[in-house]
Design a binder for these strands. Structure first.
Lengths: 149, 149
DNA sequence: GTGCATGCAAATCTTTTGCACTCTT
DNA sequence: AAGAGTGCAAAAGATTTGCATGCAC
């Protein structure tokens, strides 16, 4: 856990980015909630509540954008609400790394699905002359444990 | 075409909604662009440009919401931009009518796909204890004719 | 010391809401 | 005449941008 954070910060250094208090604050909150996907707002609230950490809300946005470019965090967007971010625990650095996510609307658990549900359809479309295809899939609901309680 | 518009307005009457100038304006623009999905902004611009028609931009939002409830228009949301609406040319009134859309980012053509690419995955999840599943899928790219030109 | 990164203010974009007035029925 | 629907103003929520200051290196 702590190792993960250190490794995380090391990646910043390796990319010639500075290890600032704000970035440590965001990273710390993300690691403490590594099984949830949090909105920038939620991350800011948790930083603010901790008293020990500090970071402006606008900086949270900027930092998350930076972290996403480095593939240190994963962004997932669900309809009608703010984007959500979580640490990218999947260590393989393949660029093609592509996933879809389930989000529980009760506990905000976010789970990735291996494989892509849409690639088959995309291949069909490419054969039909479509190009530069991209897609975005969101699945939401109640996870098993929230279903029971 | 004109018949479609009349039929459209008749549906309003059948649902005890008034046939107002604003609703005619929105419907007219939607029918003139029935193969495209337009944003509320775009619809408003076209109404405004026509000089003959008139409707406030806020009313465009309200009218689209009303039309969507009656299934007269279909709403499709794509990442990072405003929602898009188009007349629902599919006449079967099945409530289960569920589709996914492809949007061309060049000409804004929107095409529905029959069938659902995700339902199989959802059934797996239900077996695993997940409940109240919903999903949202967006596919974008260049359509064949925009690819060629 | 240098300049990357931050904090603060303000702007942007989309959409919603409140309310008085108007037009359809 | 009644009230559904509209127009205008303003608010709301998420995110971005500009710029002067400050902190990591």
């Amino acid at each position: 856990m702590e190792n993960n954070l250190d490794q995380f910060l090391q990646t910043l250094k390796n990319n010639k980015l500075r290890v600032t208090q704000s970035r440590i604050a965001v990273a710390t909150v993300l690691f403490k909630n590594s099984n949830q996907a949090l909105t920038p707002e939620e991350i800011f609230q948790k930083i603010d509540a901790s008293k020990k950490l500090h970071c402006d809300q606008v900086s949270v946005y900027r930092i998350l954008a930076t972290l996403e470019e480095l593939s240190l965090v994963t962004k997932s967007k669900f309809q009608g609400e703010a984007s959500r971010y979580m640490v990218n625990l999947c260590k393989d650095k393949e660029d093609n790394h592509h996933e879809h996510y389930f989000k529980c609307y009760s506990c905000n658990l976010v789970e990735p699905f291996k494989g892509c549900l849409v690639s088959k359809k995309e291949k069909e479309l490419e054969k039909a002359g479509y190009t530069e295809l991209k897609h975005h899939l969101e699945i939401t609901g109640l996870c098993p444990s929230c279903t029971l309680s």
